[in-house]
Simulated scan of single mutants.
Amino acid sequence: MDNTNDQTHRITVCTDCRHTGAPCRPGLDLLKHLQAAIAKAGAALSDDFSLQGSVCMAGCDRPCTVAFQATAKATYLFGDIGGKADIGALVSFAELYRDRPDGMTREGERPRALGGKTLARIPAAIVSAERQATLLQ
């Protein structure tokens, strides 16, 4: 599959708790382990993704939350991420997400460990704007 693209892929982990006003230790640990796993997966993956922590992503009832985003791709928000236990699944999803031109995946295609953990899939704004323009014609 051709992996050349103009997208900048981003993985964001919730690392600040709005309830306590302090850093979220589980989120910071998850970010650290995910950064190491992406780097270990090789340059092909680590060159395609930036990883960062973020303020609250409103997934407080289902922590830890992780978002996958890229230009002109659907955005995914996962919750109930169990630290080291889900790192392999997140790396596998990163590969799948990177290889999809629109970022769209079905639940059955995602790693089994992420089953039931999808909090949101938000269509790319660019695609939605193009679709609206077509409907208005």
Rank of each mutant, 00 (worst) to 15 (best):
S92Y: 00
I122H: 03
E109F: 01
V127E: 12
A37G: 09
D16Y: 15
K84G: 04
G83W: 04
L31G: 02
G79I: 08
K40M: 01
S92R: 13
E130A: 15
V127G: 08
A36E: 15
T118G: 03
A43E: 13
G53S: 04
G88W: 00
N5I: 03
R121N: 08
G115K: 12
F78P: 06
Q35G: 15
G59H: 06
C14W: 04
E109Y: 03
R98A: 14
V13K: 02
G115V: 00
L114P: 01
G59A: 06
D16P: 00
D99V: 02
P26I: 03
T105M: 12
F49V: 01
L90T: 02
A125L: 14
K32Y: 06
L34N: 04
T75W: 04
D6I: 08
I87V: 15
S50A: 11
P123D: 04
A125G: 07
R106C: 06
A22S: 14
A133R: 15
M1E: 10
Q35I: 01
R18G: 10
L51S: 00
K32T: 13
T15D: 08
I126A: 14
A70G: 13
F49S: 02
V66L: 07
A72F: 09
G115S: 13
A22C: 09
T15S: 10
